[in-house]
Amino acid sequence: MKAAVCVFPGSNCDHDCYHVLKHVMGLDTEFVWHRERDLSRFDIIVVPGGFTYGDYLRTGAMAKLSPIMEGITEEAKKGKPVIGICNGFQILIEGGLLPGALIANRSLKFICSYVYLRTETSNTPFTAGIEKGRVLKIPIAHYQGNYFAHPDLLKELNDNDQVVFRYCSPEGEVTDEANPNGSLENIAGVCNRERNVVGMMPHPERCAERELGSVDGRLLFESVVNYVAG
């Protein structure tokens, strides 16, 4: 099983993702520079966090035009699992692979802290092994993670079960106090209509080993490995 970690100028969570995929999950993992177009040799594609192109213009706006986006889009169309984490989520949204938009946090502050997420669906490759309603403890680190969608789109996301995670209290209640950044309906992660492309602001790769304070992030990687293994 082969995993790709896409690397853009300004990616900075690429090594964390590589470490978890390669050393924790034991996958054959490669860094792939954004100039490459062919990702057909991979089973799992990860678009990591960072500050691609210095967040110029809008987060992810430049990265969406990198050649590797052609490869990501092509493999996504084939149904392969693709996950965008933090800036990776912003890139997939800008590139049109995921719906909505991510704007500045309502506090206008960069937030770096552990948060709680309620798993809203097990029907994606990355949450297939996580029961619906389960609360995960996973950190966030972003300035622009405030999820926005127009009312029609929001309804569509809910109707199609495309909301993957919501920010919640440790007990799993979705409240405004538990919403760190102002995201509409506490949305922390979504998937595409075909369900194989997932984007999320929290960082599962930062909490996949006991030494790091939580192992909840590992559940996402285990899910996708089992999904690909069939």
Binding site: I103, A104, R106, S107, L108, N146, F148, H150, G182
Partner: peptide, 14 residues
């Protein structure tokens, strides 16, 4: 410019 109905936190702070 940000579309109407989209929160623009910088403007609010200013």
């Amino acid at each position: 410019t940000m579309r109407r109905g989209v929160l623009e936190p910088q403007g609010r702070a200013v």
